[in-house]
Amino acid sequence: MKIIVNEKELKEYFDGLARLLQQNAAQPPASDPLDASTLLAELRQTIREELTLIGLEGQRDVGAYSLKKLKQVFEPYTGKPAELLTPAGTVEGTITKVGGDCLVMREHGGSSVMVPLEQLVAFQLTGKQVEQ
């Protein structure tokens, strides 16, 4: 698993957390040891939740970047015959449109099929190709 984190925000977060802990340490100790352990448990839970949120945001950013990159890869092939392999099967035809998150293929029978970019397993140009 890869987590992309803004180091500055993460440093500020932990600096703020350290200041909170120092403030609590400066106060007189709690008379009930359960209060301190409850505080620690809540603090740990908050840290876990924050780290989970940071991880999810990073994954979302990586996914959006990947889709943009795939779109750029497929745009030059608009109007060309191709074969796309997806988990649902193979789609053969001509790429008619490259959208933000999908390809539109016109199959040989004339029907159009939308293929989500995130579902592509393999891609291959078909037919006779001429280099210019």
Rank of each mutant, 00 (worst) to 15 (best):
Y65F: 15
L103V: 07
P116A: 05
C102D: 02
K80W: 15
K97H: 08
V115M: 02
L117Y: 07
L53M: 07
P81D: 02
A64K: 04
E75M: 13
T86D: 03
L39E: 15
S66C: 09
L67S: 12
T86M: 00
M105I: 13
S66Y: 13
T86N: 04
G93A: 07
K69L: 06
K97Q: 13
D101H: 09
G110N: 02
A41L: 12
L67G: 06
G93Q: 03
P87C: 00
L51W: 07
V62W: 12
T52F: 11
F123L: 03
E42Q: 13
I47R: 03
K97E: 11
G89W: 11
G63C: 09
T38E: 15
E83L: 12
L84G: 00
P76K: 00
L40C: 10
K80T: 09
I47D: 14
S37T: 13
R106T: 02
E107C: 09
A88N: 13
F74Q: 01
K68E: 11
L51R: 05
A41C: 08
L84E: 00
L56W: 14
Y77F: 15
S112Y: 04
L51I: 13
K68M: 03
V113K: 04
P81F: 01
S37P: 13
G89N: 08
Y77C: 01
G89E: 12
P76G: 05
T78Q: 11
A122M: 10
L125I: 09
C102A: 14
Q59M: 15
